[in-house]
Amino acid sequence: MDNLLLLHGALGSAATLNPIKQALQDKYNVYTLDFSGHGGLAIPDEPYSMQLFSNDIKELLDKEGIEQAHIFGYSMGGYAALYFALQYPNRVSSIFTLATKFAWSPEAAEKESKMLNPEKIEQKVPAFAQTLTQRHSPQDWKQVMLKTAEMMHQLGAAPALTSENLPQLHIPVCVGVGDKDNMVTVEETLWAYRLLPNASMLVLPDTRHPLETVSVARITSEIEQFTGSKTLHALSTP
């Protein structure tokens, strides 16, 4: 079976991908990971960054003896997957991103990071605060959130994926977005699609940004179709 690595989004953890993992585990060797400082892992002294998360991906592949894998990345996970593939293209069979934000600028970073205020979330969305407490225990979810906001500002000042480096990525990529996503636009997804040399694009109807609102049946079907066609193409290519 092909290897498939599932990557979680900002403030997420490997556990958030369990429904997708369970739906696909009979058809792939499915792997997940908690990025550094997520899911209860020790929060590093260094800032969160795409380089840090890329190192996490390589460490998992090396540890598991995986030479090459398909990668599904939700939101920030898709961004990290593409950044990793730019560094290690031979380790990636294909990438499927969903709800990945590509349009980073100082203004976008300011807008997104404003929503990452731990005190306001505790006051206004206590259920979400409790979810984050459980997700990142024994670590302090507030620190996870503040370091994520810091990373957003870093990406706003210097995006890791640009119009210069995306055209260098020749592996198959599918960029997916929900038509009701209030954080990621169809336009910025289209921007990435047009820059990637071997890309397809998927717009999911009636789909918002949060992963739990995405149809597991639909997204797993799309992953199977995309990775299956790429595998068949690779096998039939002399």
Rank of each mutant, 00 (worst) to 15 (best):
L17N: 04
E46F: 07
I71Y: 03
F35H: 11
A15E: 15
E119N: 12
L146F: 01
V144C: 00
L82D: 01
K111L: 14
K120L: 15
L116S: 05
Q134S: 14
N18W: 15
Q134G: 11
F84V: 06
F84G: 02
S105L: 00
T32F: 06
P126R: 07
G40Q: 01
F72Q: 04
Y48Q: 02
L6K: 05
P106Q: 02
L41Q: 13
A42N: 08
T32R: 08
L52Q: 13
W104G: 03
F84I: 06
A23C: 11
L98V: 02
E67T: 11
L17Q: 07
P44W: 07
Q68I: 10
L61P: 00
L17S: 03
I57W: 05
A127P: 10
D56A: 02
N18R: 15
S75H: 06
V125G: 01
A99M: 10
G40D: 02
M76L: 15
A129V: 02
S49M: 09
A109T: 03
P118N: 08
I121T: 07
T97L: 03
L82S: 04
L82R: 09
T148A: 09
L60T: 13
D56P: 04
K111R: 14
D62W: 02
P106A: 09
I71M: 12
S49E: 02
Q139S: 06
F35A: 02
Y83K: 14
I20W: 13
K27T: 15
A99P: 04
A109W: 00
G9C: 08
T97S: 07
I20E: 12
D26C: 07
